[in-house]
Structure formats: C-alpha cells, structure tokens
Design a binder for these strands. Sequence first.
DNA 1: GACACGTATAAGAGTTGCCTTATATAAGCC
DNA 2: GGCTTATATAAGGCAACTCTTATACGTGTC
Lengths: 140, 140
Amino acid sequence: MYAFDVLGDPVRRRILELLAAGEQSSGEVTATIRAEFGISQPAVSQHLRVLRESGFTTVRAEGARRLYAVDAAPLKEVDAWLERFRGFWNQRLDALGTELARGKRARRARDHQATAPHHQTTGPDHQTTGPHHTTESSDD
Amino acid sequence: MYAFDVLGDPVRRRILELLAAGEQSSGEVTATIRAEFGISQPAVSQHLRVLRESGFTTVRAEGARRLYAVDAAPLKEVDAWLERFRGFWNQRLDALGTELARGKRARRARDHQATAPHHQTTGPDHQTTGPHHTTESSDD
DNA sequence: GACACGTATAAGAGTTGCCTTATATAAGCC
DNA sequence: GGCTTATATAAGGCAACTCTTATACGTGTC
C-alpha cells in the first residue's frame, strides 16, 4: 500500500484537493501551492511527479502545458483499507457494553488485505473483541 | 492531518489491522510483527508509541502488560478527508460525457449502502472537469 | 530481597525524503 | 532564429524516520 506514503505529505494532499475541483495545469497548481506553502516551482513539480508516478493523477499535454487530474484508483485502495475500521465509529460506543452483554456482537474482521511482506495473518485466536470501548473516543 | 504520516508505515498499518480484531497486549503484537517483518522488540515498541501518541490507540495496563486497542478518532479524520473523492469512483467514468450531455447526471442512486450509514455522500460537485476518463491504473 | 518477565526508553547508525539552485527541454511568439 | 513561457530533471544539503543494541523500570514469584 504505497498510497499512504504518497499521502503522507501535506503538499501532495493539498494538490489532490485542488485537483478534486477539476483538472488544472501544473502552473496553476504551482501558483497556489507556492502561495500556501512557500516552496519553489521545482519542489511542486517533484510532488506532481510523485503523484503522477504513483497513479494518483493523470496528465495530458495541451501545448506546452500539462493538465493534471485526479485518478481515484489509489484513493480507492486507501478507502478499502479503512473499510475494516468503519465499524469503530459507526456504533454507539457507550452502548457497546450492552451489546456485548447480549452476546450479540457483529462479526468484524472479515477479510484482510494485509500488505504485510510475508504470509497471511496469524489470526489472533482470542476472542474477536471488535470495537471495544475507549474511555473517551472523541466523536464529532 | 498528522494521521497520514502515521499510516505511512506498513508496520503501523499492520498493527492497526491486528488491533482491529480486538485488544492485544504489546507482547502479542510484537510476536506477530516480529514474525512478519523481522524487526526487534524495541522497534515494535516504538511503533506502538507512535500509534499511542498520535491517538490511534488507547492503552490500559493489566499487571505488567499493556493492552492496546484501536481508537478510531484519527482514522475517522482520514475517512473524512477521503470524503471529497468518493464521487470519483462512484460513477461510470466512461459514460460521464454522455451522461453530462443528457443532463442526467445528478440523481444517480448512490448504490452500495450496505452496512454503515456513513456521512451523507456529499458528492464532489465539480463543475465540468470532474472525473475524466483515463485508463485507470488499478495497480502498481 | 533476588530474579525473571513484560515493556519502554536511550543513543547511535543508516536510509529516505524534501527542498534548494542550476539547468534542460519543448512550445509559442516576434 | 532568438527570446520568453511552461514544465521537468539533476545534484547536493539537511532533516526526519526507522532500525539496532544496550539498558531501565515496573510487576509477579520464590
């Protein structure tokens, strides 16, 4: 899951945000990013390269310009990874105790798309204690 | 959005995957990670520290053990960031042009409402350029 | 108290990542 | 052709990250 590495940089995330509004030329992106982050044109170009080479964007030439646009594929991957955690903020944590008491918990941890280098998951053969109660999980 | 930095590391992502199945002690996590990644106990402990200090996990002591569990707050943040891109993979990219021509775009049933009543999908209402057609590179 | 276990921290080395300045390539215009 | 605009690449410096080994700290046991 190379994707998370790419998204680790705030400049790159910002560029994607900009492109989410629609195709933009390298120059347009550069102007905005320079204004916001105060970095040089080559620096922005390098970030664009990373995004391009990692599949987050597509580019097409229009004269001397390069028009960048979001390619959602890697983001989709990230979204898929998050999938397994969705249950953690979709339920009333406070009510969890009750749920457990009823022995009625839902089965989570269905698939694992581990990016681990080696073999598969050695599933914790404990109780699958899904979403537990965290003392105070901030929810907004 | 510190969260993406934390998730940039494959070991940390794996640890979260493990914890997604339920609370685990530092030792249990360490055993699995050591087996899969071949790194030392202190290395795992340091990753656990990062996860702890960045709010991805909670810890509670049980005797000499430290029991770690997922805290979803930061993941929720990541999910919220992704929100703006959801529209990019919920529509038929190839048909987009046609669809626009027919002016039929808007009301597409959002489909996939499987389990979670996640936040309302505020589709990216990018005017024109939105999701364009490209060859989607699914993997790299 | 002494010792083993479970876990964390400290200090240092190697690697990776991002930024800068300088420069190259290509297109547009006169 | 020669100049300007648009964008990319190259090379080097510095900071940040992650690993390792060594060690400290708290807990349970005898």
